[in-house]
Each structure stands twice: as structure tokens, then as C-alpha cells.
Amino acid sequence: MRITPEVVERVARLSRLELTEEERATFASQLSSILEYFARLDRLPTEGVEPTSHAIRVTNVFRPDQVVPSLPVEAVVAMAPQAHEGFVVVPRVLEAEE
């Protein structure tokens, strides 16, 4: 499977990764050869095989609806790169604009 720099760019945008021109080229060639190796999976028929998403067969693990103490807001603020009066601060988010 050939991964073009354009596919790399699309995937990088979905992944929120800013890439340099050089990185795009390197990743394109590396991902191509990795996926080429992975193509051996196509040799194995899997028609009708149930997919495994968990290593264990357990169901219904729940917690009771009980309130437990939250973190102090100071701890939240201390972790944040930028904070203001208990809020975490981010660059202006543009919501619905005409």
C-alpha cells in the first residue's frame, strides 16, 4: 500500500500534528513500507470471524451512583498551562458565526 504525502497530510491533520515537508516525506515512505509488511494479513481469510476488542470476557462492571470528593480546584489550576479564576484558558474558540 502506497502512502502518499497527501494521505500523510490528511492523517496528520486528523491527528493534529504539524509536520515539516521533510517529515511528510519520511513518514510517507516509512508508513508505506510498514503497511506493505502488514499486507500479509490479507493472506489470512477472516470472513465471519468475530472481532476481539477485549482480552477478557467480562460484562457489566459498574459503580454505584455515589458522589465522592472531587479534586480541589487549586490542583486543577496548578496543572493548567494557563488559568483564570478557576477556568482553564485557551485561545478564543469560534463558535457558530455567520
Binding site: R63, D65, Q66, V67, V68, S70, L71, V73, V76, V77, E85, G86, F87, V88
Partner: peptide, 22 residues
């Protein structure tokens, strides 16, 4: 519910920002 979907933080409305987090 009293607590959140996946943790024990309160769902009470109107608390000061980031006081009901974990």
C-alpha cells in the same frame, strides 16, 4: 443521577468552575 457517568464527581448544577472534577 447524583454522580457523573464514569466517575464520582457531583452533577450538581451551578458550582464554581472546575470544582467538580477529578
Amino acid at each position: 443521577t447524583q454522580s457523573k457517568m464514569f466517575c464520582g464527581c457531583s452533577t450538581r448544577f451551578g458550582a464554581p468552575p472546575n470544582t467538580q472534577t477529578c
